[in-house]
Design a protein around this nucleic acid. Structure first.
Lengths: 201, 201
DNA sequence: CCTTTTTTGTAATGATCGACACAGAACTAG
DNA sequence: CTAGTTCTGTGTCGATCATTACAAAAAAGG
């Protein structure tokens, strides 16, 4: 991009990654420019030159989050042999992704963003769209399950996709509260028992 | 309390109610003292004299929330004739309580507090305890269901209580995103299909 | 009446917020 | 080399934050 002029002395990608982790852990408002400068190892004028503003940096950070942490979980939805296996694999992947790790904060950055605090409208719109996209992915997989004959044509797609989204979102909240992967797998097992036609009487 | 001296000119209970609604809608950090003074109709010195600090006011507000909005939902757990009816009635009550109304903001104040932003430790501890108490109430009802013979003794109480808590918490997130009661009742119907022994094959 | 006590309104405190002005440093193009 | 361009570091801007001094006002006790 910048062919002439003084070269940038920091790795933009690494700085964005650090900003993503800081925002993920503390949220938008609670992460100050000072926090970001410390986490990214960059002075504020360099940060503004590279990213524009705190809000623009957050938007890039959450976009990066979706690119990096979305596929390992949400691609499972399509990889499953059946719609049921897809949903189950999605939720099982979430049990590994949601709890805190050595490098990542607990919970889902997009699910938990802007649900309890007032955030800038631009950010609130983006994260809400991500959550709506999750619902859309679930709905699409269930619809294909009906088309494949795996699910009865009478299946309430809207309700079932919202239900499994609820399970994912609730697991994200509990991961925030310290739930471990083993505790979340129990939730998944219980949730899969709600699959239409899975009678065990 | 104050027998002598100039009498207070505002209704402390009404002011607390207004503060609760403001905190509920915007969260702790995003609600400034200016916002609170406007919402409560009180100048800041009077506010500090009556409540101590912003943090102490929040703690009183969330305590008031639990007292007012907790029982209409969570008492349903014990009122049901069976454990299954109790859980279903709890979730159905939530479908009426969680969506935004003319007077209340959307979502559950205790469920969504401090999940996306860093809040003062004292507040984070309190709201997390409330969420853990919800889990405890579910667990206790399921345990009594096992004792009554309504549920198999092999029931994974821990997993099932976490599962229904997930559903409640996920519905709270979706209510934040604008879900209506009708959409949440579909989630409840799907969730109740996961009840152990509810075979429909 | 006067004193004591508490609340009220005005105004200001220091701290922190996001964002930026400016000058010097580091690079390319010619 | 010089000129043009971009980045870095220091320092600071006005705004807003939670909190509080201070004095006038409103009540009760004597």
């Amino acid at each position: 991009m910048a062919l002439i002029g003084r070269p940038r002395e920091f790795d933009r990608g690494a700085a964005l990654e650090a900003a993503m982790l800081a925002f993920w852990r503390k949220g938008f408002a609670a992460t100050s420019m000072n926090d970001l400068c410390d986490a990214m190892g960059v002075r504020s004028p360099s940060l503004y030159a590279a990213f524009g503003s705190k809000e623009a940096l957050y938007l890039e950070a959450v976009e990066h989050y979706v690119e990096i942490f979305g596929p390992p979980v949400w691609d499972k939805l399509a990889e499953g042999a059946t719609a049921r296996a897809g949903v189950e694999n999605l939720l099982l992947a979430a049990t590994e992704s949601l709890p805190e790790s050595h490098v990542t904060p607990p919970g889902c950055m997009a699910t938990l963003a802007a649900v309890s605090d007032e955030w800038p409208a631009g950010i609130a719109d983006v994260v809400r769209k991500i959550r709506i996209d999750m619902l859309g992915m679930l709905r699409a997989r269930l619809e294909s399950g009906v088309a494949n004959g795996e699910l009865p044509t009478t299946t309430d797609i809207e309700a079932l996709s919202r239900f499994y989204l609820s399970v994912y979102q609730g697991m994200a909240v509990q991961a925030r509260d310290g739930a471990a992967a083993a505790e979340l797998t129990g939730v998944v097992a219980a949730a899969m028992a709600a699959w239409p036609g899975d009678g065990r009487a």
